[in-house]
Amino acid sequence: MVSILRRLSTIALPRASLFKSMESSNFNGGSQRLVALAQQLRLYKHPPFPDEIEEQSIEESGGKVVSLVGFPESATPIAQQPEKFKPKRAAVLICLFEGDAGELRVILTKRSPKLSTHSGEVALPGGKAEEGDKDDGDTAKREAEEEIGLDPQLVNVVTILEPFLSKHFLRVVPVIGILHDKKAFKPVLNPAEVEAVFDAPLEMFLKNENRSEEEREWMGEKYLIHFFDYETEQKKYLIWGLTAGILIKAASVVYQRPPAFVEQNPKFKVSQVLTKDSVMR
Rank of each mutant, 00 (worst) to 15 (best):
Glu162Ala: 14
Asp135Glu: 01
Ala140Cys: 06
Thr159Asn: 09
Pro50Ala: 09
Ala12Phe: 01
Ser116Tyr: 08
Tyr44Ile: 00
Leu34Tyr: 00
His168Met: 11
Glu162Pro: 11
Ser31Glu: 10
Phe49Trp: 10
Glu221Asn: 14
Pro163Asp: 09
Val65Glu: 12
Lys235Glu: 15
Val122Ala: 10
Asp181Tyr: 08
Leu189Arg: 00
Leu13Ala: 05
Arg211Gly: 06
Ala91Arg: 02
Tyr255Phe: 13
Glu193Ala: 14
Leu274Met: 12
Leu68Pro: 05
Gly30Cys: 12
Asp138Gln: 07
Arg15Gly: 01
Gln234Phe: 09
Ser3Thr: 08
Asp135Leu: 06
Lys167Gly: 15
Leu124Lys: 01
Thr139Phe: 03
Val273Ser: 06
Glu131Arg: 02
Glu147Arg: 05
Leu18Pro: 00
Pro14Ser: 11
Ser24Glu: 13
Ala250Gln: 07
Phe228Arg: 02
Ser278Trp: 03
Asp136Pro: 01
Lys269Ser: 10
Pro14Lys: 03
Val106Asn: 07
Asp136Phe: 04
Ser17Val: 09
His168Asp: 13
Val175Gln: 06
Met280Leu: 13
Met219Asp: 03
His46Arg: 05
Ala91Gln: 07
Leu41Lys: 02
Ala90Arg: 01
Gln80Thr: 12
Ser74Thr: 07
Thr275Pro: 08
Arg89Asn: 13
Lys167Glu: 15
Gly120Ser: 09
Ile178Phe: 03
Gln272Val: 12
Tyr44Cys: 10
Ala144Ser: 14
Tyr44Asp: 11
Asp136Ala: 15
Arg211Ala: 11
Ser278Leu: 12
Pro125Tyr: 03
Arg142Phe: 08
Arg105Asn: 02
Val173Met: 15
Lys167Val: 10
Ala12Thr: 08
Lys207Pro: 03
Asn26Ser: 14
Lys114Leu: 12
Val173Ile: 14
Val35Cys: 07
Ala38Pro: 03
Asp151Leu: 01
Lys276Ala: 15
Pro259Tyr: 13
Phe49Cys: 10
Asn210Met: 09
Ala38His: 11
Phe71Pro: 00
Glu231Pro: 05
Gln80Ser: 14
Pro47Ile: 08
Glu233Trp: 02
Ile78Ser: 12
Pro125Thr: 01
Ala36Phe: 04
Ala250Thr: 06
Thr232Phe: 06
Ser67Tyr: 10
Lys276Gly: 14
Glu23Lys: 12
Leu8Cys: 12
Glu213Met: 11
Lys20Val: 02
Ala36Val: 04
Pro191Ile: 07
Pro72Ile: 11
Ala200Asp: 04
Leu161Ile: 08
Glu233Gln: 11
Ala192Tyr: 00
Asn208Gly: 15
Thr275Ile: 12
Leu104Glu: 07
Gln81His: 04
Glu214Ala: 09
Val253Ser: 05
Glu59Phe: 03
Arg171Met: 00
Pro258Asn: 09
Val35Gln: 03
Leu124Ser: 04
Phe71Tyr: 12
Leu242Ala: 10
Asp277Cys: 08
Pro259Phe: 13
Val197Ala: 09
Glu103Asp: 15
Glu73Val: 05
Gln264Glu: 11
